[in-house]
Design a protein around this nucleic acid. Structure first.
Lengths: 119, 119
DNA sequence: GGTTGACCTGGAGTGCGCTCCAGGTGAGAT
DNA sequence: ATCTCACCTGGAGCGCACTCCAGGTCAACC
């Protein structure tokens, strides 16, 4: 049962300490354990969850949606179908983002070619 | 020499009228012509430029960078190498975004599979 | 000639996602 | 013993990119 100090979690997850506190404040992260001095001691589970949060955040999921997902996770196993649905919808959006970026990229590429043709 | 009313440009570009005014105000769009009544009449060139702006914006370029690009365009043909450099750098970033999204997507996909295995 | 509707201006307000700050605690090193 | 350092709390502030608002103009249709 390993625990992590704030500095370790910052290192592992890439979130700033302020962001971690913010996530806890808004409930995206469940109340983190404290030691006798009141300092946070993150569990393995916390760190794992933060990995998921990073993935969702980096793929553009708004905090409000992550919060909904967090609530489903907390509500227990009977919400697994709902979680699947939420993630599938998100995956479709990620797919759409990729397709969109690829299209824009080719536009940029053509623009570069055009500029090159002027030299 | 076709001209476009604000409503037509909104339709064509997908930018809101407020956004178009904002872009003009900050200089991302050069001062647009007005008719006798002071209403905007966008040129073909304006609309073309807005297409580029949409592409850059939708690929995550910050306004400050688009502004730099706009200044290069206005400064004349001798800035073409600089424009190529700016766009190439941006293209690399878009490529990185795509790669990153693809990786995250596979994480999400695995998570969905895991959830499915629990049903 | 009254009303509607598209448009104008300058400037204030908004939403998101953090980020920073003041003032404080407790543990460990010199 | 004092200093540094990592951390704490509640709350204010920030940067970005818009978005909205009040008060007004003008043209066109009934």
């Amino acid at each position: 049962m390993s625990v992590y100090t704030p500095a370790e979690v910052v290192e592992e997850t890439g979130f700033s300490i302020d962001t971690l506190r913010y996530y806890e404040k808004i409930g995206l992260l469940e109340r983190v354990d404290r030691n006798a001095a009141g300092q946070r001691r993150f569990s393995q589970e916390d760190v794992g969850w933060l990995g998921m949060v990073r993935c969702l955040r980096d793929t553009g999921m708004p905090i409000a949606t992550m919060l909904r997902f967090a609530e489903l996770v907390r509500a227990g196993d009977h919400t697994i179908p709902d979680r699947i649905e939420l993630l599938e919808e998100h995956e479709r959006q990620v797919q759409a983002q990729i397709a969109n970026l690829a299209e824009r990229q080719s536009y940029i590429h053509h623009k570069i070619s055009y500029y090159r043709s002027l030299l």
